[in-house]
Design a protein around this nucleic acid. Structure first.
Lengths: 228, 228
DNA sequence: GCCATAATTTAGGTGAGACTAACTTGTGAT
DNA sequence: ATCACAAGTTAGTCTCACCTAAATTATGGC
């Protein structure tokens, strides 16, 4: 039995597909064609085509009209790309002073070009971070990912005190706004009131009182504060 | 007259072509199809095809069967890519401890993915270097390149004392060997003897005496030491 | 249990960038 | 001056990754 390291060089496009399939699967169990298409900004038939190739290459398991799931191999590849992405984000903020709203796009391109050695050196240079600047956990070199239990701020009951764990990283403007409000990973927050019908949520952030919409609140993942 | 910034997003492949055309042109005035092909590791017909496209896009001037020359636009684009490449190389060595024989390949991929902002931040972080780790000058942000006058060590007369300016960066093994010999940019060298018929050249490097072949010596660019 | 509609796939096409095989052009040696 | 050969080009394919238009399948409301 010959062990071939089989380091298939995946194209940038394939890596992107695996990443979003991983994330959709984490949320819903399977990833649908249209969801993938929307996430990648691509037409659904393009996804159908790619799905066939990914399945042929053993990266996903696939039943026609039934959605898609990563295989072991696919999951490993996805986690590697995600690790690259998040380490790059962390490095750009820590080492090069990038503002947190601009690291995502840069990382999106660099993640396909950076070698494992570079990623490891970056991680070492900034003290082996465990999360990216938005609070997303960084998969280990070995391909494990530890997702702490979190809930969207939008679903937290009035009166509860929580800690911001992670925020959505796609939208730079949103990130800038959150920074303005003081809502960054690690920050403690108290939910004061929640207006009905998905109305605004008012929060105490440090000394300030803020009010945000429920859409934004669903992009903020929080953990209950453990009793001290 | 509307000034459109016209930041055509060039593909990685196009950037690579422009880079090698720039370098060949610097050496010989025009770049030939076969030369380009050899340099890029691609078949000559692929180059013919690309040449047509580059010419259509106004990046090169081209006469059939007569070789290729960069236009103003093409030259600007080439210099931008070369700047990216060399800044990345310098950054990887200075900031991340990369050995000089491994930065080339990494930079080769990153140069197509890095934004101008990243390159500028990298350059600033390591003190605006003017050369890469192999001694190649870094084009400025504004697109000017200052090439100091150099000659290959292979053509230096016996008895002359020179300073290593720059060494070939393509071959990692060669770079490792040069480092072993102490032949790195900035190093002073005295040419002791030159055997005829392209024979070995013996050198004094610091206290040591070394002997190298003429092939290797042609990869080492030196400048005469100015009288102190 | 049927059927409108949403989700998905097939069919057919495009452009980039590469390839091989076969042709044409330019040039240097005689 | 010509002609062999190297340099360059054309012709025809291929893969990747996308597209639109047109079919097909699944499903939830009645």
């Amino acid at each position: 039995m010959t062990l071939v390291k089989a380091v298939k060089t995946l194209t940038a496009s394939v890596e992107d597909y695996l990443k979003v399939i991983f994330e959709l699967e984490a949320g819903e169990g399977v990833a649908g064609t249209n969801e993938i298409a929307a996430e990648l900004g691509v037409a659904p038939p393009s996804v159908s085509g790619m799905i066939r190739r990914l399945a042929d290459n053993g990266l996903i398991a696939y039943e026609r009209y039934r959605g898609v799931r990563l295989t072991k191999t696919g999951r490993r590849a996805a986690l590697k790309t995600i690790r690259r992405h998040r380490v790059i984000e962390a490095y750009l903020t820590s080492a090069l002073g990038y503002p947190w709203d601009r690291v995502h796009d840069e990382a999106e391109r660099l993640e396909h070009a950076a070698s494992d050695e570079l990623i490891d050196r970056m991680a070492a240079a900034i003290g082996e971070p465990t999360t990216d600047p938005h609070g997303a956990p960084i998969p280990t070199r070995e391909g494990t990912l530890e997702e702490p239990p979190v809930v969207p701020l939008a679903s937290v009951a009035e009166g509860k005190r929580v800690r911001v764990q992670r925020v959505g990283d796609r939208n730079p403007e949103q990130l800038r706004y959150l920074a303005e409000l003081g809502i960054t990973p690690g920050q403690k927050i108290e939910v004061l009131t929640r207006a009905p019908f998905d109305g605004p949520i008012s929060l105490r952030v440090g000394r300030a009182v803020r009010s945000i919409g429920s859409g934004l609140a669903s992009q903020i993942l929080v953990a209950p504060i453990r009793s001290v």
